[in-house]
């Protein structure tokens, strides 16, 4: 019976597939690289910070071919969970670590060094065909987005706005963007009305707002800057200050409030003693890293803030500086805490 052959071929199919990629595994490490760093750097966490970590990893490994840097995306919360049990060296986070996560890490004897690496500005946008919105105040945004809000028409937002239905597009509840927007605008994390077009995929929000003249939406600044011709930015008026639109300048110097947020990496303090981790973090906060931040669409910190962050790392200062008041406080002052 040749059918035994066919049966064996099923198994062979599997073996074949394995063999096919086995050979591609040899590393192409050039002999005598400048530094003989070796080892692994395991990074995981926020999808917002991912593009930065990916870019840094790529450039770092060009200079240090002996080190294997891997970056995962399991979300800020997911990454910090893995961090708290010691599975990863560095956790990407799009918000500061929260008390529960801190306790979890502490219980396992894991200390962390908190390092801000960039800013992102959550952008409120409308359709380019919208000619009536000149700016929105934080109070107006709160009235629109708070739980149970009854606002369904633009003229309910402000009486001078036209009688047009208001179509809302916003972040899905699993995203760090949602957490941050609700905290900054509504005042309470995860408190939001739920009758809006929600998506974890910011690209689909871009498509939604750009195709609907009555739309209002929010997402990360990078998604606006890649689609400038399809969207219109809404300047935000915070208290008595003049309305400010997000831009690399206003996000970076802290005048775009309250929607500009720092992005972090959390480094395991024990891992921070390994030479490959030290080199990687120095690279991340150094000149190359700073340049990469803007290249992938985020706003770099001020040069002196990078210095302060690096100082935190070199002196091995553990704990978070972001559990006190942060809105309206100079960023460098927070870093000195």
């Amino acid at each position: 019976m040749t059918n035994k052959l066919a049966l064996a071929a099923v198994a062979a199919l599997g073996a074949l597939v394995l063999a096919g990629c086995g050979s591609s595994g040899e590393s192409k490490t050039p002999e005598g690289a400048a530094e003989k760093l070796e080892g692994k750097v395991v990074v995981d966490g926020s999808s917002t910070v991912f593009p930065i970590s990916e870019a840094v990893a790529e450039e770092f490994m060009k200079e240090n071919p002996g080190v294997r840097v891997t970056v995962g995306i399991s979300g800020t919360g997911g990454g910090l969970k893995k961090f708290a049990v010691g599975e990863i060296d560095i956790s990407d986070a799009s918000r500061p670590i929260d008390p529960a996560e801190r306790d979890a890490a502490q219980k396992n004897g894991i200390d962390f060094i908190e390092l801000p690496v960039a800013f992102d500005g959550l952008s409120v946008v409308v359709n380019p065909g919208n000619d009536w919105v000149d700016y929105l105040t934080v109070a107006e945004l709160k009235a629109i987005w708070e739980p149970g809000s009854k606002i369904t028409n633009w003229n309910q937002v402000r009486p001078t706005f036209p009688d047009r239905p208001l179509k809302l597009y916003g972040a899905g509840t699993d995203s760090g963007t949602f957490d941050y927007f609700t905290k900054a605008i509504v005042g309470e994390e995860k408190a939001s009305r739920s009758d809006y077009q929600a998506s974890e995929d910011d690209n689909s929000l871009v498509t939604g707002v750009s195709g609907d003249a009555n739309a209002l939406g929010y997402f990360g600044y990078a998604y606006y800057s890649e689609n400038k011709d399809k969207l219109k930015l809404v300047p935000i008026k915070n208290g008595d200050a003049d309305p400010v639109a997000p831009s690399p300048e206003t996000i970076g110097n802290g005048t775009y409030q309250p929607l500009s947020r720092p992005e972090f990496i959390y480094v395991n303090a024990e891992a921070a003693k390994r030479p490959e981790i030290i080199a990687f973090v120095r690279f991340y906060l150094g000149e190359v890293g700073q340049a990469l931040v803007s290249e992938v669409g985020y706003v770099p910190l001020a040069p002196e803030d990078y210095k302060l962050a690096l100082e935190r790392f070199e002196t091995g200062k553990t704990g978070t500086a972001f559990d006190g008041p942060t809105v309206g406080v100079k960023f460098s002052d927070i870093l000195k805490r």
Binding site: G25, E58, T70, V71, G72, S74
Partner: peptide
């Protein structure tokens, strides 16, 4: 795969069943 912790940025190919 994401749940068990598959990576996203990897600049090497697996050389055995014990690689990321």
């Amino acid at each position: 795969l994401i749940t068990i912790g598959a990576l996203t940025y990897v600049a090497f190919t697996p050389t055995g069943p014990n690689d990321g």
